[in-house]
Amino acid sequence: MQGYRTKDFWAGAVYVALGLTAFLLGKGYSLGSAARMGPGYFPMVLSGLLVLIGLISIARGFLSGGEAVPRIHIRPAVLVIGATFFFAATIELLGAAIALPAALIMAAMASRLFRISPFAMLGAAAFTIFCLAVFVKGLGVPMPMFGALFGG
């Protein structure tokens, strides 16, 4: 079956999944009346609409075929998104001076052209100093320079 591999099918699946989640989570909100619409009115209409659009997209994927979904590259996604998660998880413990360059290197590894080299390490250090100077010192973003692990 070609249909399962089309972009339209999977986009439709994403819409249906989002719409259904919104519907299920929003079930409890009261609908109200036309004069006094409740908090559930819009969520109900919108989630229904999104499911409908999703179903049309799925049907289109089966009926008219269309392009197949290109390969999803797992490695860059894991490393780049992982780097943001790593930064979020460790900033309080390690502090920006350590979490930031670590996240930088981790994100950089998503690129096939990147090699850990003295130049890269130096660059990461310089960029970290720049960020600390601009954001923490200059703009007063309350981000610990050294985290709880180092008594900061």
């Binding site: 998880a89 460790t90 309080e92 413990l93 985290g147 709880a148 692990l149 008594g151």
Partner: peptide
């Protein structure tokens, strides 16, 4: 994962304080 890291961070902070 996030929770336990937070707990660890909090614990260390408390110790220092």
């Amino acid at each position: 994962m996030l929770k336990s890291l937070h707990a660890l961070a909090g614990g260390v902070a408390l110790l220092c304080a």
